[in-house]
C-alpha cells in the first residue's frame, strides 16, 4: 500500500464541510486539541506506518513555510 493522493472521496465537498462544521464554535486551543484527537484516530485507522510516513512527508513538503 502506498498513500492515496488521487481523489478518494465520492462527496469531497460534503466531507470538507463536515470537517469545518466540527470545528464550529471551538476556540483556537479547542480546535488544536480536536485536530490532535482526529489525527490520532485516523492514523490508527490507516494502520500502515509506511503510508503514515508518506502522509507526514507530503504534509511537510506542501507546507510552504518560509525558511528563516
Amino acid at each position: 500500500m502506498s498513500l492515496v493522493t488521487k481523489r478518494n472521496l465520492a462527496d469531497q465537498d460534503g466531507a470538507y464541510a463536515a470537517l469545518i462544521g466540527a470545528h464550529k464554535g471551538l476556540s483556537d486551543a479547542e480546535s488544536t486539541a480536536f485536530n490532535a484527537r482526529l489525527i490520532l484516530i485516523l492514523m490508527n485507522h490507516i494502520g500502515d506506518q509506511a503510508v503514515i510516513g508518506e502522509a507526514l512527508a507530503l504534509a511537510k513538503a506542501s507546507g510552504g513555510r518560509v525558511a528563516g
Partner: peptide
C-alpha cells in the same frame, strides 16, 4: 504540538481502545 498530542491521547484513552 507535543503537549496537544499527549493530551489528545489521554483524552481518547477513555473512549477508544487503540489509544
Amino acid at each position: 504540538a507535543e503537549r496537544w498530542f499527549r493530551d489528545a491521547t489521554l483524552a481518547l484513552a477513555g473512549h477508544a481502545e487503540f489509544a
